[in-house]
Every structure is written in structure tokens, then in C-alpha cells.
Amino acid sequence: MDAEELLRRYAAGERDFTGLNLINTDLTAVNLSNADFKNAEFRMVNLRNANLSRANLKNSYWEESNLQGVNLRGSDLEGVVMRDVILENAEIADTNLSNADISESNLMGANLSGANLSEASLYIVGLSSANLERVIFRNTILDEVSFDSPERQYRDIESPKLLREYAAGERNFAGIRVNGRSLSGADLSRINLSKAILIAPNLSGGNLSNANLSGAKMLGANLSGANLSRANLSGADLSGANLIRANLKGANLKDAILSGADLSETDCEGANTDNVILVATNLRAAKGFNSGVGAFVCKTTIPDGEFIEGPDWVE
């Protein structure tokens, strides 16, 4: 059954979808309240902001799915299995989660008030800012569960999975470590990768316009031809990065480290370069690049081809 058929049958009054199997399906903001999804399987399903209140989800299986902002109030989730599921800011109040098995999932900011987690198992789950009033934790296993603030959350993610989550509507990947290098040509506009770790990623030709890359470590990144217009790269470490012919118009490069980076033929019109570090950097033919206040320049080729031995600080 695909999404279209499911919604058609639901609209016709059907509520019994026991054993349903949905894969790679977009059901953003749909209303499926009171539906029976007992023993159903959901893989790579986007139910962001959907209404599943009072649904029967007993013994259902969820994997790599986005339920951010979903309404599950009053639903029966007894025995549910969730692997790598986003439940950030979800409404899970007064639900039955007894005997649930939830692992590597994000419940930050979720409302769990009155939920029953008896005999449940939570492994590598983020619960920062979650509402846990009146939650029943009878014989509940909490293994590597984090109640820390969001900025301290941390997880590894494979690049294909990052692309899937982004396509499903997720934009916040702050503080993650991306494994796998191939993101060439990807559209990741407005993504939040602040303080993320991406070692030698291939983002050539990608769209990172308006992205938040502040404090990110992107050593040896291939960003040739990438669109980084209006991106926030403040404090980012781009040592050894390939930025040839990239678009950095209006980007914030304040405090960024560009040691050993190649920015030849890059468009830097309107970029903020205050306190930028330029050591052995190639800026030949870079358009509109001006070293900002406090910039450190050493052994660098500037846009007109002149070699600056340095060290020199721009006042």
C-alpha cells in the first residue's frame, strides 16, 4: 500500500490498517487519528507534524523515520520498536509505551507527561528539555540516555542517512560527526551543521546557501564550485579545503581558519573576513576578497597574484 491509497481509504472511513508496511513514504502533516496500525512497519517514513492521536500502534516497528512534532497523544504504543527515529517536540502525552524498545532516537523537547514507560528499554536516547511529569518509569531500562542541553547532544551519522533525513524535512544536524565523504552535488541549503565534524567531505557543486556551519571542522573539504552564499562559516576550520570557484557571496567567515585552503577564482563579494586566518592560502583571482579587521596573513597569495610572506595582521 502506498501513501495515496492509505489516505484514500482513511478518507473513506477505513481505520483498520493492521500489518501495514510503508517504506520511504511522505505523510507530512496528515491526519490519521484513531487508525489501527497494530503490527505495522514504518521504514524511512516522514510523518512530521502528523496527527496520530489515539492511534493503535501496538507492536509496530519504526526505523529511520521522522516524527518531529507528531501528535501521538493517547495512542497505544505498547511493545513498539523504534530504531533511529526523530521524535523531537512530539506530543506523546498519556501514551502507553510499556515494553517499548527505543534506541538511537531523539526525543528532545517531546511532551511525555503521563506516559507509561513500564518495562520499556531506552538506549542512546536524547531527552533534553522533554516534559517528563507523571511519567511511569517502573522497571524501565535507561542506558546511555541523555538529559543534557541540546548543544551537548552528539551522534554519528552516515552521509546517505543525512541526505535521507534532510529530504524528510530535518535541518538540525548541529554537533554531529558525518561519516562517509560523498555529498557531491547535494542540496543542503539552510542546513544546521554548526560544530559538526566533517573530515575531508566531498561537497563539490553542492548547495549550502544560508547554511549554518559555524564552528564546524571541515578539514580537507572539497567545496569546489559549491554555493555557500550567505552561509555562516564563523569559526569554522577549513584547513586544506578546496574552495576553487565556490560562491561565498555574503558569507560570514569571521574567525574562520583557511590555512592551506585554495580559494582561487572564488566569489567573495560582501563576505565578512574579520579575524580570518590565512596561512599558505591561495586567493589568486578571488573576486571581492578583502582581508577583514584582525585577519592574520602569512605565506599567502592574494587575489592580484602577489605573495605575502608575512606574518601580518590587518588593522
Rank of each mutant, 00 (worst) to 15 (best):
N222V: 07
D76S: 08
F296V: 14
A256S: 12
L97P: 00
G294R: 06
D255I: 02
I277N: 11
N89F: 10
N34W: 10
I302K: 13
D26C: 05
S224A: 10
A100F: 06
A271N: 06
G69D: 13
I157A: 11
N66K: 01
D148V: 05
G250M: 01
R9V: 10
S33I: 07
T18L: 03
G13P: 01
D312A: 14
P160D: 09
E41G: 09
A285P: 00
L107H: 01
V70I: 15
E306I: 09
G79D: 09
G270E: 11
R164C: 01
A256E: 11
L163W: 04
I102C: 03
D304Y: 03
G169I: 07
E306D: 05
I92E: 00
S113W: 00
N275W: 12
L243V: 02
N96C: 06
N89I: 01
I191E: 04
R177P: 04
G109S: 03
I277L: 12
D76G: 04
S149T: 11
A216G: 11
S184R: 08
S53C: 12
T301Y: 03
Y154E: 10
L117V: 03
R181M: 02
P303Q: 09
R152K: 12
N202G: 03
L112P: 01
E4I: 09
A40I: 08
G114L: 04
N34F: 13
Y10F: 15
F17I: 13
L278K: 15
G126V: 06
D143M: 05
L162T: 09
L77H: 12
G205Y: 03
L213F: 10
L283N: 15
E91A: 14
S103Q: 15
N207K: 06
